[in-house]
């Protein structure tokens, strides 16, 4: 029970402001890695994923939990700290889980042609997040960026839907990076 009540932001307006700036910079500069702090979600969820949930989700944002993330401890923590309603993948505005657990990612909302913003944001938990590997180009990237992505095909397919598509926040420990639909991803 204690694990549910603790681990939120102690000073929500300041901590969420700091967290959002990291998320904003991350989404604006795909592939760049930022460190965040302030959340202690129950295992197996990372600090960065917890920070993203506390900063972006609330009772108005349907959330899907995939794989290990779909555990009682986390459901309780989310219920207490954000109130986000838990839903199946197809209805989710946010989704949280490992890359494998989120598959097939094609089931997530990619927006509507006249409202491409009505699309899911996937919070992808990774074991590794390093500035190496897949080559990223596109808006927000001066020349190119490198990021250790779990694969590239799914992101290429997502890019092909532009302006539709889902957007990703990649988390590992206290670090995060983002991969919006606008980024072109190529194999290393």
């Amino acid at each position: 029970m204690n694990a549910i009540l603790t681990g939120g932001f102690a000073d929500p307006s300041t901590q969420s402001a700091h967290a959002f700036r990291a998320l904003l910079e991350a989404m604006a500069r795909p592939g760049r890695i930022f460190t965040v702090a302030g959340a202690q979600p129950p295992a197996p969820i990372s600090v960065a994923a917890g920070v993203a949930l506390l900063t972006l989700t609330d009772s108005t944002t349907p959330l899907h939990l995939a794989g290990d993330a779909d555990c009682e401890a986390l459901r309780g923590w989310i219920g207490f700290h954000t109130g986000a309603p838990l839903v199946p993948a197809e209805q989710a505005q946010f989704a949280l889980g490992g890359w494998e657990a989120l598959q097939p990612v094609t089931r997530f909302r990619t927006g509507e042609p006249s409202y491409p913003d009505r699309s899911a944001t996937l919070i992808v938990e990774l074991d590794r997040l390093e500035p190496e590997g897949a080559r990223l180009t596109g808006p927000g990237i001066q020349t190119e960026a490198r990021l250790s992505l779990p694969e590239t095909a799914a992101f290429r397919a997502n890019r092909a839907l532009f302006p539709l598509g889902f957007d990703c926040i990649l988390t590992c420990g206290a670090r995060l990076a983002a991969l919006p639909r606008s980024t072109t991803v190529e194999d290393a």
Binding site: S16, A17, L24, T55, T61, D167, P180, R181
Partner: peptide, 17 residues
Amino acid sequence: EQTKRMIRRALLKALAI
């Protein structure tokens, strides 16, 4: 804070598109 979250979500989508 709820209003800020709503605006923040919109800002991230705006950057993505």
